[in-house]
């Protein structure tokens, strides 16, 4: 029950082992979070099927405390980008990410989500979700096997373990602005690119 919770330097008598632990606030905070990660039930493409297979009986994601997959972003803290991210869909993905409450993590599953994969050169494809969202763990594969996804999820847990309650961004005073939602224009427009685009335009005018 208290596995991984007790600090190794403290001796716990064998008769109360498993019921008492001497630990730090950070450790118990992370220990509680690492076994209750709720992924978002959000399938994009092929990888979503392997994600469902991971939730199935053979691979059983529930062993890691992750069996509750919620379709609503308000109830999730892990977004698994399971498939090709297209330009038409990326405004919705960014909006969903902004709607997730902190703490939140992003796992990029498969080649397409990580860098465009085989569809990288497509005119409607965003070559990697990391162009828009901060990705915590990349899982390679096309699609990754359920074992690979489980390994990625364990990496998320490891990342959670290393966080400190005094430094995490969701308790800091800086307000969370969210990520600006891309716009569908003649092509995909990222509002963060506006200064660069304007500069380019001005340079052109100068030359003319």
């Amino acid at each position: 029950m208290t596995e991984g919770l007790n600090l190794p330097e403290y001796y716990i008598p064998p008769e109360i082992e498993g019921t008492v632990a001497i630990t730090t606030l950070d450790r118990i905070y992370n220990w509680g979070r690492r076994y209750s990660v709720w992924p978002m039930f959000f399938g994009l493409a092929c990888c979503a099927i392997e994600m469902i297979a991971t939730a199935g009986a053979r691979f059983d994601m529930a062993r890691f405390g992750m069996e509750i997959m919620r379709p609503s972003p308000r109830q999730c803290d892990l977004m698994i980008i399971s498939g090709t991210v297209t330009k038409k869909l990326v405004p919705q993905i960014v909006r969903l990410y902004n709607q997730m409450p902190e703490p939140k993590y992003v796992l990029s599953m498969g080649a397409c989500a990580s860098g465009g994969g085989p569809f990288k050169r497509g005119y409607n494809v965003v070559a990697g979700i990391d162009k828009f969202l901060p990705v915590d763990v990349y899982v390679p594969g096309c699609p990754p096997t359920p074992q690979a996804l489980l390994f990625g999820l364990m990496k998320i847990q490891e990342k959670i373990d290393q966080e400190s309650i005094s430094k995490v961004r969701w308790y800091s005073d800086e307000p969370d602005e969210g990520i600006p939602v891309p716009i569908l224009g003649p092509d995909l427009i990222d509002p963060r690119d506006f200064p660069a685009l304007l500069k380019k335009e001005q340079e052109k005018e100068k030359q003319a």
Partner: peptide, 27 residues
């Protein structure tokens, strides 16, 4: 291929596209 592209992204704007004057009617 990314290094040659403006902004390094998979994006192609028409000639003379200016985000300030562009009217977002697509939505």
């Amino acid at each position: 291929i990314e290094t040659d592209k403006p902004l390094g992204k998979n994006i192609n704007y028409p000639e003379g596209f200016n985000p300030e004057t562009w009217i977002p009617d697509a939505k």
